[in-house]
Design a protein around this nucleic acid. Sequence first.
DNA 1: TCTGGGGTCCTAGGACCC
DNA 2: TCTGGGGTCCTAGGACCC
Length: 290
Amino acid sequence: MEILARTGAQIEQMSIDEAYLDFSAVFSDAQNFDEGILPDSIKLARQIKENIFRERRLTATIGIASNKLLAKLASDFQKPDGLTLIPDRDKVLFLRPMSVRAIHGVGKVTEQILNGAGIQTAGDVQDFSADLRKLVGSFGATLKRFAFGEDDRVVETHSETKSISSEETFDRDTTDKRLLRDCLREQSMEIANELKEKKLGAHTIHVKIRYSNFETLTRQITVEEPVNEAEEIFRLGCFLLAREKLANRPVRLLGAGVSGFDEPMAKQLHLNLPSEKRAEQNKFVPPPPP
DNA sequence: TCTGGGGTCCTAGGACCC
DNA sequence: TCTGGGGTCCTAGGACCC
């Protein structure tokens, strides 16, 4: 990521080892993608791969195209140590033979649905004249555009956190209340630390339970006042588990999480309230620790 | 494949309000 | 007293991505 940052591109980091780079500002004088940007991007991509290898002894795979969807497909095309580009004029043909599963947003379930309607490839989606929404709901319009290589998703350089969570799968299913409590306490601390790091408070707390048959349940509660203390998250988590006796069967996985973060402005207002008033505002009275 | 962990987004029902 | 329509919020589950 450090090496990528030196390119001056707009960067959206997708995971620990993957990112989208937007060079349109770097190549702002270029007229169109195929003639203007593509040739220079190839030089740049080679340079990046060289730098990564020289400085970290790691190979990298790069896909170059005019949008995220195509760049990702290009990068999947040849791994490891690949460099693939998709000229804009070739995108429709490039996509035609690809399995629908390769299209961003099509997973196992959607693939089955599409296959059931006789749609196997992106080309089949291109040619499908009936209403895709009957098959995949609101994803229909996007799926159609993706199949033609059209994608207007922008490279987001900073996206705000929407949720924070922690979960753990046990070595063996457990009914040990002590173990579960300790686990939840630890997760609450991790979450609280991250909340404080990011200067956030959360209105919604959830717990997640998975049983030995993989059945997975979530329970959540929304509170008036944002929380960021481990003790509070732990207490609400215990409350949710106890309320519906979720831990009365052997548990394989336990998780906790928070969401519904406060707007920075609203948070300041809350913090500035006198403490008695704050207590009054809190409709939900947390139960005592178990 | 007998299934880890951290996320985002969508859907659908119900409560509640006007 | 019953009922229409629209909107928001909360909850739960699930598909999908990396």
